[in-house]
Design a protein around this nucleic acid. Structure first.
Lengths: 258, 258
DNA sequence: GGGGAGGAACTTGTATACTAGTGTGGAAAT
DNA sequence: ATTTCCACACTAGTATACAAGTTCCTCCCC
């Protein structure tokens, strides 16, 4: 029953890496870089390059590549090269669908299992989120956002389901990091969070699930705007208008530089 | 729009393997063995052993291990050994929860998007399932079962979501293969399928989703019986009554045999 | 000047060698 | 006979070497 230590953990514990050692480190580093948007969709990578960058051999890097490919974050083309996966609008929609399916259900269940400690925790998270909005601390807000969603999943009695959400969320986060610049959105999201928590604490599962659905959809709604602004990062949405696309010619081969 | 070729594909195309070459072959083979129950929970494996069995080196086997571990089918303990993951009752429940969340939603949506070709396909699948029941062909029935569920997911407009279902389903299938011996269950499952299809074709999404939920739960209901019958295969459910447990002493080290 | 053949340098896939750590069995001491 | 301890064999993790394939650039021929 000690599962509520989750609120004490740092935002992203090493548990996400799953695997120990250099392999897990490479995985965690690459995943962070990609999800943070520092490695852009379409950017070419190579096992050798990353291995040199991290000071390890190809083997652990390769293992990280495999896991990231199976998560849809890398695109490995045998004998050709590996790139950061373009954002597939359809894959994002699938992620959105899955997250709705999962989290609407957990939210509905959570509303029927509110314990005093849960109420306190959710209120504390909302308070901290309000502070983050006031500070315009986007990174902090996102972390608190995740913790709230995770807590609701745990309340539903299925704490480990959060792992599935994390995998699905990855595709969505890649879009979100491209969009999240307008500070007014943070306030809007916070308002939606407050609505969710209100319904959950009131024990109204149906309303809580509906509020969660609205919430998740609003985040997804921005994808069209992003896709038309950065068409080069996407695949399947824009009809390959390669006019000023900044990708697809990875890098001037940089003959034996360093 | 050509996505309905799915009904023409063989039951399990190589697409499941995801990765080409020896690595993909090792992955596909191991996954099949585990899900078919031929490799039992707790059974010790080793990269060397499997590599020799498949006639390849450790490298591709290792890559297969990594993917299977991330799917929860293998348990890799560094410097100690790798075993087929014991069936974690909690993980199975999580899988059940996820599948309900996903498939109830797809079923509800599917009911609102029935095209003539879908109606024909679903009826044909039901007919074939009835024949499989008559023949007591369990493997054939399971394959048709998967195809029906997959088709409903595709009808909902999210065909690739089936990949997520497949991953989640793995944990459930391990239990199912231990249970599926009573032929009367096949008839019961078929009846549930007929109910689902009826509601879907009638366009009643709510009833269809409810029928799907009933259906999925009934499969899950057998887990307690299995867990008490084969306690050695499970973890977390039984309080470690190691009386006659057939696992956990992998193999007499077989000193330099062969 | 334009086009085609060839080669160099890159990519990932696979095989092998080496490292570090763990558990088990057996020998030795009590 | 029992207990302690040590050595060996086996494990997965990592590093390196080799193989097969693709792309692109250059040089040569027309």
């Amino acid at each position: 029953m000690g599962s509520f230590a989750s609120t004490l953990l740092p935002p992203e514990p090493a548990a996400t890496s799953g695997r120990r050692g250099a392999s897990g480190a490479a995985y965690a580093w690459l995943r962070r870089e990609i999800l943070a948007g520092r490695m852009r969709p379409g950017q070419a990578l190579s096992e050798n390059e990353v291995a040199a960058r991290l000071g390890v051999s190809r083997t652990p890097v390769r293992e990280a590549f495999i896991r990231l490919e199976s998560e849809g974050l890398l695109l490995v083309r045998p004998q050709v090269g590996t790139t950061v996966a373009p954002i597939d609008v359809d894959a994002v929609a699938d992620g959105q669908f899955l997250r709705e399916a999962i989290e609407c259900r957990t939210t509905r269940l959570a509303a029927g299992r509110v314990r005093p400690t849960d109420a306190r925790e959710l209120k504390a998270l909302l308070r901290d989120q309000a502070r983050a909005v006031a500070r315009n601390d986007q990174a902090g807000f996102l972390s608190l956002d995740d913790r709230m969603h995770q807590h609701i999943v745990a309340m539903a009695g299925r704490p480990n389901v959060w792992r599935a959400v994390e995998e699905v969320k990855a595709q969505l986060d890649r879009v979100r990091v491209l969009s999240l610049e307008d500070p007014s959105w943070l306030a809007a999201i916070l308002a939606q969070h407050e609505a969710i928590v209100t319904h959950v604490l009131a024990g109204d599962g149906v309303a809580a699930a509906a509020a969660m659905e609205t919430h998740l959809r609003s985040v997804f709604g921005s994808i069209d705007a992003i896709a038309s602004r950065d068409p080069g990062y996407f695949r399947g949405g824009a009809p390959a208008s390669r006019s000023g696309a900044p990708l697809s010619r990875p890098q001037p081969p940089a003959r034996r530089s360093s």
